[in-house]
Amino acid sequence: MIKKEKMRVISSRQVAKDTTEMVLQNTYISETSVPGQFLHIFLDGHTLRRPISIADINKDRQTVTILFKKLGDGTEQLAKVTEGMLLDVLGPSGNGFDMCLEEGDTALLIGGGIGVPPMYSLGKKYSERNIQVVSVLGFQSKEYVFYEEKFKELGKTHIVTNDGSYGAKGFVTDVLCKVRGFDHYYSCGPIPMLKSVKNTLEGKRGSISLEERMGCGIGACYACVVPAQTEEGYKKICSDGPVFDVLEVVL
């Protein structure tokens, strides 16, 4: 259930170019969040909240971690929020990943840019359940790379940069051929990347997480819809998603 909560900022630090990692404390949100969900964050002076995906959940410390990239005034303002301040948050919002794998199975995580964070909370949870995790992470260039070490702790990790300044050169799909044997893939990133992942891995079971400009963030305003193979013909990203079976929505 979504609640409107105050979250205390425990830490905020830059982890890559234009990219901030923020740890937020709140009992209800940390106890109820699952990988794939997001927080809808209010910022003073802004009409619309900012949807930011959850990158890590720590029930012992009662924290969740978010990562976001400065893309406009909202995220610029959020990056200036410092330790000790309180954020007005709606969450946990949306539905998490279908964690359908069992011990001994292998999960392939494919993240692009600011689509990488939700892959981390999922990978960590799967790793705790003794599910093999293989990650393919794409970034624009070297200065945008983050969480490489953290993903390596979970399993084999391939880093790709568009300009080749770090790791392999190209797109995530260029290294997918190197990954052999997995049971389900999970992907989050820009739509062109998700399309090309879907095509490259055609016939494989997969889940994708979508992002879109949102209004209410609770399913009432119909701002963030995606065409779908259903009777109604659409799904709401904020409340039916943001995670969907790859065959359910039309990219």
């Binding site: 009409t47 619309l48 909202g74 879109e212 400009r213 209004g215 701002a223 819809v225 995606v226």
Partner: peptide
């Protein structure tokens, strides 16, 4: 309805 994006702040 229309294609997305449908809202802008």
């Amino acid at each position: 309805g229309n294609d997305t994006p449908r809202v802008a702040e």
